[in-house]
Design a protein around this nucleic acid. Sequence first.
RNA 1: GGGCGGUUAGCUCAGUUGGUAGAGCACCGGCUUUACACGCCGGCUGUCAGGGGUUCGAGUCCCUUACCGCCCACCA
Length: 866
Amino acid sequence: MSDGVDQSHPISVPDKPALEGLEQKWSERWSHDAVYAFDRTRDRSGVFSIDTPPPTVSGSLHVGHVFSYTHTDVVARFQRMRGKAVFYPMGWDDNGLPTERRVQNFFGVRCDASLPYDPDFTPPEKPGKQPIPVSRPNFIELCTRLTGEDEKVFEHLWRYLGLSVDWSMTYATIDRRAQRISQLSFLRLLGRGLAYQLEAPTLWDVDFRTAVAQAELEDREQPGAYHKIRFARADGSGFVEVDTTRPELIPACVAIVAHPDDPRYQPLFGTEVITPLFGVRVPIKAHALADPEKGTGAAMICTFGDVTDVVWWRELGLPVRAVLLPNGAFKPVAWGEGGWQSDDVVRAQVQYDQLAGLSATKARVRIVELLTASGDLLGEPRPITHAVKFYEKGDRPLEIITSRQWFIRTMETRDRLLERGREIQWHPPYMQARLENWIHGLAGDWCVSRQRFFGVPFPLWYQVREDGTVDREARLLPDESRLPIDPSTDLPEGYRAEQRDQPGGFTGDPDVMDTWATSSLTPQIAGRWEEDDDLFSRIFPMDVRPQAHDIIRTWLFSTMLRAEFQHGSIPWSNAAISGWVLDPDRKKMSKSKGNVVTPMGLLEEHGSDGVRYWAASGRPGTDTAFDPAQMKVGRRLSIKLLNASKFVLTTASPTGAVTETVDRALLSKLAAHVDVATRELEEFSYAGVLDTTEKFLWAFCDDYLELVKARRNGEFGDTGAASAITGLTSSLSVLLRLLAPYLPFVTEEVWSWWRPGSIHLASWPTSSEVLALIGGARDEAAEAVYDDVIEALAAIRRERSLQKQGFKARIAHAKIGWGAERIARVRLAEADLKRAANIDELEFVEHESLFVEATFAPPLAREVPA
RNA sequence: GGGCGGUUAGCUCAGUUGGUAGAGCACCGGCUUUACACGCCGGCUGUCAGGGGUUCGAGUCCCUUACCGCCCACCA
């Protein structure tokens, strides 16, 4: 054999092999022996690099993680055995809102960015009723502390599952390196004009009080109601009726719009109406986005009720009349001289003051009362259900609020990214459509700033004018060598701490980056871009990005964007998209649905190999049902492997030339299987390979083992025995290595009985290695014999079953009828067949189709020892 | 409304370039057989979602309908 190991290693097979404890035993050994250490001396062509998804540590790991990370690990182990140096880091996504929320609840604190750092702060033992305000640096310390503990739990689970990660290369999305690279990349984009700051209407979560990006939206069906409102025409000639679901935004109304071809409104374009309650004159405008079918065909444009309002506002050149504060409450407004204009400022003030301070929901109730009283609400509100945009982590509908935010230019790069998407090999291929779909639907540049705390700060300051206002154009940028920096504590070059927030001084940018602004740089972070360029050149562009399909629009897309900007290339050559784990009732598994299956419990119950077996049977991109039955099957396969190995290795010598037809056939078939398996694994088709290899192993046990058992034990002489022993041990070695990526624990255990070193560093089997044992080529004649022998054996077994005879019952005389050619073939393995079928005398007769007659020896014969 | 998947045995799913429908689980029957009873042997199970077309021949290719799921859009 050419698996590159010492043949003289002593063999030691346990009496009662078992799976229990293998996870503990081997995960410790692998760690101790650094089996999965990345060899950074290899050049790019000798490396297989993986852009591991960093799991969110503030959530808990669930079955879905075990599922998809197993897929990646199978591929990693395959590539390692193929001889690649596998770059397989683990990252932790500990940055962002989920962590903030967890820290707030866990410690009972609240971040107040205006407070100074308190180096002696310790959180209370138990969180109090009132959250304690802490400074941003203190808050970040608490975040770091909590995520550090979470990460230990995660790492333990991953090791127990058997992920072949190089744990010395772990990163976190909030660690110094991730911060430095995020800030460095941002400054470079800023320098090239690819990042810019703009005051503009932005999607805004009023609870988190932050801007959010298009990619973080989701629609939710919400109850609402159409309110028919009348607007008096300014010339007194009647009313214009408008249906709205947001009557509370009437004070924010800046125009009425209808479709340019709508004959009902054509005569009115260019005229004015007066808003009810507030008496504001607003124009009637024409715009193609207005839908004559909706409501009355005339819509109220407010600043801002939804994203269409923003389009109308921009394209029609309308003024801003914003009423909402960042916390979602109606802001105070002064009407009249120097304030907002109205035909009746006294009334407007009286009406508006009843809304000021209220949330949108409460204001809606109040304004309906006011409109009813004034007679401007026509009829009853008509309840409807409609989709409303939410921040995916939020609880209240998004508002649109004008604020100053950082953006990364994406719109002009869209076509380039579509091309780049076609350079990537997608697994499965149809997932590429998700990316294209998303890119085609992009509505604007990527808003990357968040008004939060636990994230990567924007690395810059602004000058404060002598009048105390901030000059946003007078940016103070740090030297790249200082990164990472926190502008809330670090100082811009040439300034003193006392000048912070003082007239003539400076102030730090208060925002942090969107979590995807950091996550989009995982290849650069893991590969230590601009820190260890030698390493980076050996792993980038990476080989594969494994991820789920729901974050193609966020993580996959943004990573491609950053790689395009930073390197002018794709970030990886393959995208391996995993599906979800579904409940038995076909719903996505989630904690909120009360699926309390913990991964560790599963691993302990079914064994890591059993769980991995289930996971690896899920094909790329395909949602897979959570199925403990499959884990049991995997466990049985593992046990089978232990027992079959025990049988084979109990007599592992002397080996010799593979002379017997049955042995030659098995090896010939195995060689063909190895070729297919290798080709498919190169294409990430791990599930099919597991399926076919499992079937091969099962047939190996049930048929081949039974056929050669007696011969192996020496019943037909030394030559036949040596042939069988070579066939058995060689194919076992190959089968173990084929299964090693899937069942790393049990295969390692068996390997340790007879081979030195780890199976996971052994070479992947090749067909030439196997064929070398039978003269270097497939033996198709032997394979044909084998197929016929198996068919005959099955027929004999069927006959035995029909006669309700146990295996110990000897067949004194058997007659097989079959075609002449097939009889001739079976005769080439007659001795093996007779012994496997427990036949004393075997007679062949020519017959067009296969039949078997069996005369069993009298029951007395059962007592005769074989 | 646009896009993408899916629909095959009671369940979970395979079915490569068209060529007599498969596996595992479940179920039923038999078997203590020196690797394994966590096992072995055997058996039962189908209008391949519906309709139409191409073909000597369609689960497979084309058209169409229905249903399920996901992504996106719609939010007056």
